[in-house]
């Protein structure tokens, strides 16, 4: 398979993930969609890594995996904390960033 097909697949997965971030309001699902976007990025990185025959890209993906895990841990920690404080689990209700 040509590399470009992997890249197109990666772009598609990325946009699906982004769409999810845009239209869903449950923070757990938004985190899931972020995972989608991250794994799409990882796919592109692996495709380039194969194209260049350079394994540095694969190491990069591993690091991204770690960062994603951190993001999950902190994100879900926030979700649990919100739930404990009986806050509604809806990102539209978190408007503290409002200017």
């Amino acid at each position: 398979m040509d590399i470009e097909w992997y890249l197109v697949l990666s772009a598609l997965l990325f946009t699906i993930g982004f769409t999810g971030v845009l239209i869903r309001r449950n923070p757990v699902v938004i985190l899931l969609c972020l995972e989608l976007m991250l794994s799409a990025g990882a796919l592109a990185m692996l495709a380039f890594s194969r194209m260049l025959g350079d394994q540095d890209g694969q190491v990069m993906v591993l690091i991204v995996l770690v960062v994603a895990a951190c993001e999950v841990v902190v994100g879900l920690g926030i979700v649990v904390a919100m739930f404990r404080r009986r806050l509604p689990l809806d990102v539209d209700d978190m408007k503290e960033l409002k200017g």
């Binding site: 971030v21 845009l22 990102v91 539209d92 978190m94 960033l97």
Partner: peptide
């Protein structure tokens, strides 16, 4: 602020609004 006011009509959720702008 005026630009924000204009954009605010488009969206209800702040966070996702930013995401849309970014996109």
């Amino acid at each position: 602020r005026s630009a924000g006011g204009a954009v605010r009509d488009l969206q209800s959720g702040m966070l996702r609004g930013y995401a849309v702008l970014m996109l």
